[in-house]
Amino acid sequence: MKRWLVVLFSLWINSALAGDAIYTGFFSNKAVSGYDTVAYFTQGKPVKGKSQYKYTYQGADWFFASQEHLDLFKQSPEKYAPQYGGFCAWAVAAKNSRASADPKNWKIVDGKLYLNYDDDVQQKWLKDIPGFVVKGDKNWPKLLAE
């Protein structure tokens, strides 16, 4: 019985995530769990955003640590938004599926921000970033269309 519940829950999660272009979790509308995506580029680390620096982009709420970061994002959101809508980059590439991502598991590659599910998944991602980027870039448009 437990196994069937796990299977049903997994199917429900995947179907709940299926149509979203930006990962926000199930009970939130916060992109990147409320972390400031500009901070990855300017400070080299994940920084929590503040509610007074909120901006809605692609149907999700993005939070920033400062007005300066908010302004930078508004000028060029595609530069600062994570690839694959903030879903786990490894899952998009290796599994052709969507999975949540932890903002603390990140990497900037060729000026683009990628997030991963957890430390273990990120270690897999780090083994072949160029190959996974090629696969992810191929898979992502199809996942968006589903």
Results as ranks from 00 to 15, higher is better:
V47H: 06
S66V: 15
A101H: 05
A81T: 05
S28N: 15
Q43F: 14
F27T: 10
A81E: 01
T42L: 13
F63N: 11
F87N: 01
G25F: 14
H69A: 11
F63V: 09
F27I: 11
Y53I: 11
D102V: 08
G25K: 13
K48G: 10
K95S: 07
W90Y: 14
N105Q: 14
G44S: 13
V92N: 03
A60Y: 02
T24S: 01
T37S: 04
Y80P: 04
N96T: 10
D61Q: 13
D71T: 14
K79P: 05
A65V: 14
A39E: 02
Q75V: 08
N29Q: 12
P77N: 12
K74L: 13
Y23T: 01
N96H: 14
S33V: 01
S66Q: 11
D61R: 02
K30L: 15
F26S: 08
A91V: 01
Y53P: 01
S66G: 11
K54M: 14
A81L: 11
F41A: 04
D61L: 08
Q43P: 13
F63E: 11
F27S: 09
F27P: 02
G59Q: 06
Q67I: 13
L72V: 11
V38T: 03
F87M: 04
S66D: 12
D36C: 02
A93E: 02
K107R: 10
K74E: 13
S28F: 10
G59N: 11
D36K: 06
T37M: 10
Y55C: 04
A89T: 07
V109L: 00
A91K: 04
D71E: 15
N96L: 09
S66W: 05
W62D: 08
S76R: 12
D36H: 12
S76M: 07
G59S: 06
R98K: 15
F64W: 05
P46K: 07
S100N: 08
K45V: 12
Y57E: 06
D71M: 07
A93K: 06
S28P: 12
A99D: 03
D102F: 02
N105W: 03
P82F: 11
A81Y: 06
P77H: 09
T24W: 03
P103E: 01
W62F: 08
D102K: 08
A101Y: 08
Y84N: 08
N29V: 12
Q75G: 09
A81Q: 00
K79S: 12
E78H: 03
N105I: 04
R98Q: 12
Y57Q: 06
A89I: 02
G85M: 02
E78L: 12
F26G: 03
A89M: 05
Q83F: 02
D71Y: 03
P82V: 05
F64A: 07
F64P: 01
Y40K: 10
Q83T: 02
D36S: 03
D36Q: 11
N96P: 06
A94S: 07
Y55M: 06
K50E: 14
A81I: 08
K54E: 13
I108C: 12
V92E: 02
T24I: 09
A39I: 09
E68S: 15
Y23F: 15
F41S: 09
K74V: 15
A91H: 01
P77T: 13
P77F: 13
N96K: 13
D61I: 04
A81V: 05
F26R: 05
V38R: 05
N29F: 08
W62C: 06
Q67F: 11
K104L: 13
P103Q: 03
F26L: 15
W62L: 08
